[in-house]
Simulated scan of single mutants.
Amino acid sequence: MFGWRARLGVVVPSSNTTVEAEFGRAVPDGVSVHTARMPLESVTVDELDAMADDAVDCAERLAHANVDVVAYACTTGSLLHGPGFDTELETSLSETAGVPAVATALSVKRALSALDAERIAVVTPYTDELNEREESYLRDEGFDVVALHGRGIEANTGIGSLSPEDAYRQVRGAVPDPDAVDAVFVSCTNYRTLPAIDALESDLGVPVVTSNQATLWDALGRVGVPANVPGSVGER
């Protein structure tokens, strides 16, 4: 049986071209990945807000595949309305699918907390409006955002075209003094980051958390399967 250890259900924006590839390469043997898509073309507040309405329907369809856990793989989509919305989202997806559920924003919070990170640098591909929403969310959750750098990209396919090298160079440019932070968070599930994590941790000397890494680590942890993700959080 395919997915004999666990079947991972993933809810993704329709224009996301990264999650399935990164999850597919990172899941351990015996874990299968099954996705359902919510309509989204541009990473804007209005489109993210409308997209959330489809999340429960996606979870219901994933339940037809007898998945063991559901991951809502969209960072800004799960923090858009601040703390509390993320928990409500996880609860709704879990109740609909009848299995545990995680949302990327809370997965990132859990990963940073597991690393005892308080002072963080945040790197994103987003516009200023979404960066402000993300910074507010993280500060409300108790993190000290000491640096934030975005690329100003709105089209999600444009984000998906970025490479791990782009992520590496953006982080290095945004974090000139690694001693000033406890960790770096690279946001967006459509940003290809997994191949860059180990090199960044080696060069910076601090843990690096990314949206896909944290989401996969959190989701598989809910079903007792160690996640095969790079970086310090994979050791927790």
Rank of each mutant, 00 (worst) to 15 (best):
A147R: 10
T210E: 04
R133L: 14
D68H: 12
V175E: 04
D144A: 14
E88D: 12
T215R: 11
D68T: 01
Y168D: 00
V67W: 09
T157C: 03
G142T: 06
V122T: 13
G152M: 04
E60H: 09
R5Y: 00
L162I: 05
T75N: 15
A174L: 00
T87C: 05
V31K: 05
G77K: 13
G221S: 04
A219E: 09
D86F: 04
G150W: 01
A63Y: 11
A155P: 07
R133E: 09
I197C: 10
V225M: 15
A36Y: 12
I120L: 10
R192N: 03
C188E: 14
R110V: 10
R7S: 07
C74T: 15
R119M: 08
V99F: 10
A97T: 07
C74D: 15
P226T: 10
V229S: 12
F143Q: 08
L48W: 14
E90R: 04
A97E: 05
D218Y: 01
V43N: 13
A50T: 07
F185K: 11
E60C: 05
D179W: 00
P207L: 11
S14C: 02
E135N: 09
G77L: 03
V67G: 12
F85C: 01
D53P: 01
R169I: 00
A111V: 07
V33R: 02
Q213P: 02
G84C: 06
P39N: 08
D179P: 00
V146F: 06
G77W: 07
L62I: 13
C58G: 04
P100Q: 04
D68Q: 04
T18S: 06
P13R: 13
N212M: 01
F2T: 12
V186Q: 08
N156D: 14
V122N: 13
P207K: 11
L200W: 06
L148Q: 05
T215H: 07
D218I: 04
P176D: 01
E41R: 14
G77N: 14
G224K: 10
D128N: 07
V45S: 09
V67T: 11
Y137L: 13
G160L: 11
I197P: 03
